[in-house]
Design a protein around this nucleic acid. Structure first.
Length: 515
RNA sequence: GGUGACGUGGCCGAGUGGUUAGGCAGAGGCCUGCAAAGCCUCCUACGGCGGUUCGAAUCCGCCCGUCACCUCCA
């Protein structure tokens, strides 16, 4: 079967280009990961999801994938173009804010790293082949800085080491920020390093023996600049030529611009062919911010605590939404366009995810029965899958892909009685669709003790028994024509968040998804 | 001020020259004891002004608006 061409928008060229891996059918790419100083929010994961879809699409095409995704566990200054030893960094601020929770900065990093990985699995993102930590690669970073100084791409001052932007003529290509005076023109409240040669120069190493994390270097105790870690870890694991690099749109400048300069200065040639950036999302039409009250971490939505009052009560009361619903909701905008995340979208997503689960269960039942009969679904579902894959290959058009896939759900639902052959086709389609989109079933459930949540269709055995008892009473009442009593029982169930559905072949129930 | 992205029906969002996106909400119908769920039908838009063309949401120009980055941020 011939596959569609995988195309992605390349920030470097401003064009949507066919993805042509350097090694045939082997995509190698680097994804900028989080700084672990707080719980990751849904915007962070929109960006990580982009990397996950690049992986899944490549795998669906039969390619091998090597993905490196870092964890930044070094606290970097809030102004990385200066080496101001008086400044505080994000992780240090977090530690001071949460001093009672953590014994030191490493404790804090460990905690948030663990939480991040939990969220990652909950949202059904596939694990990268390599997940390097910045703190474990400081020696590599130091060596890179030394090399840059030796090659005259960097110079030292009393306060640290700077990359000399002047030494790299292509600086500004990625972002379009080519004018030095633009950077000078920006208001800066911090004290300049008087020894800095060019306002655009950025720090590679900061001299600061007082920093909570510090390492020994030829320039005394200190810590590395922010941009150098990704250059170093990328090339360490992917070599000095690899295909693609992802990140949020905010990283275009300065982070990726600086990374390109470092890479090229070190390697002597371009290192990365495609740069892919995910746009920020908004929440309910506004920039997500704590002050606006629309700032959601992943765990705010999938397992909110009773004190998380900024989370809508409807979500808190039901113990959070299905993580796959959050994943589905985040797919309703293409990564490269502005996306307005709303609770309405989340609720719709929860319904669709439940629909997939329901169809999946029916297919399982039909497989067990394995009835004789034709297979009206196979060809239809194959065509739907091809359209889904084509949408993903078209610059990760996830809204179009989910729209196409939903037609497959309908096709299965509309089939009155699934033969064994039809069920096998349906099962095969569900598996392929889940491999590509990750919205049918979690691939990590076995790793994680999944707490029974309202819309997982699970629930405690005792609860389910009570519901079954009520339904039995209702059935008896209906059989006796006592509809008033039957409807009263239905109202009781409804108040418990249970939907009752009388189908031709019997009564079914499920938990509601209204948020 | 500089750089870039984007503007589609009540809402979310596909669609790059001529033919239905889809979903959500809403209306009607089928089914049901009544509901719910599901299914069927309906609701037909492209920021504004010019231009190119037989024909533009789709190409070009200008304008308006929104968002983001230029300072930590996915």
């Amino acid at each position: 079967m011939s596959h569609p061409t995988f195309r992605l928008y390349n920030t470097l060229t401003h064009e949507t280009e066919p993805v042509e891996p350097i090694e045939e059918e082997h995509l190698r790419f680097y994804s900028c990961g989080p700084t672990v100083y707080m719980y990751a929010h849904i915007g962070n994961f929109r960006s990580f999801l982009t990397a996950d879809f690049i992986r899944r699409t490549a795998e669906a095409l039969g390619w091998d994938v090597t993905n490196v995704s870092n964890i930044t566990d070094v606290g970097h200054l809030t102004q990385d173009d200066l080496v101001d030893p008086g400044g505080e960094d994000k992780m240090q601020q977090a530690l001071e804010r949460e001093g009672e929770r953590f014994a030191n900065i490493y404790d804090l990093a460990r905690h948030y790293t663990g939480a991040f990985l939990e969220d990652w699995r909950a949202l059904n993102l596939r694990e990268p082949e390599v997940r390097p930590r910045a703190t474990e690669h400081v020696t590599d970073q130091l060596q890179a800085v030394i090399e840059l100084v030796e090659k005259d791409h960097a110079y030292t001052t009393d306060q640290g080491v700077y990359f000399s932007v002047e030494s790299f003529e292509d600086y500004g290509h990625l972002s379009g920020n080519t004018e030095a005076q633009q950077l000078e023109a920006t208001d800066r409240e911090t004290v300049e390093d008087p020894q800095k040669r060019d306002p655009r120069d950025f720090a590679l190493w900061k001299h600061d023996p007082e920093h909570l994390m510090h390492w020994h270097s030829p320039w005394g105790w200190g810590y590395p600049g922010w941009h150098i870690e990704c250059s170093v870890m990328g090339m360490r694991y992917l070599g000095d030529r690899f295909d693609l690099h992802t990140g949020g749109e905010d990283l275009i400048f300065p982070h990726h611009e600086c990374e390109i300069a470092q890479n090229q200065a070190l390697a002597g040639h371009p290192v990365v062919n495609y740069w892919v950036h995910t746009r920020f999302l908004q929440v309910e039409g506004e920039k997500m911010s704590k002050s606006a009250g629309n700032f959601y971490t992943v765990r705010d939505l999938i397992q909110p605590g009773p004190d998380d009052t900024h989370v809508p009560a409807s979500i808190r009361q039901r113990g959070g939404v299905d993580p796959l619903a959050l994943r589905y909701a985040l797919m309703q905008g293409q990564y490269r366009k502005p996306f307005n995340f709303t609770l309405d979208t989340l609720e719709t997503a929860a319904r669709h995810v439940r629909r997939y689960r329901s169809v999946s269960e029916h297919v399982d039942e039909a497989l067990a029965e394995d009835a004789e009969g034709p297979d009206p679904l196979g060809d239809r579902l194959d065509a739907i899958y091809e359209r889904t894959l084509a949408a993903m290959c078209d610059d990760l058009n996830t809204p179009a892909a989910t729209a196409a896939a939903l037609e497959g759900v309908k096709a299965i639902e509309q089939t009155d009685r699934l033969s064994g052959a039809a069920a096998r086709s349906a099962q095969d389609w569900l598996t392929r669709t889940n491999d590509l989109l990750g919205i049918v079933a979690s691939e990590f459930e076995s790793n994680e003790p999944h707490e029974a949540s309202a819309d997982s269709g699970l629930g405690t055995a005792a609860q389910n028994d009570a519901i079954e008892d009520l339904l039995a009473d209702r059935e008896a009442a209906r059989a006796d024509g006592e509809y008033a009593r039957a409807d009263a029982i239905r109202d009781t169930l409804d108040a418990l968040g249970i939907e009752v559905m009388d189908r031709p072949d019997g009564t079914e129930w499920r938990r509601k998804v209204e948020l």
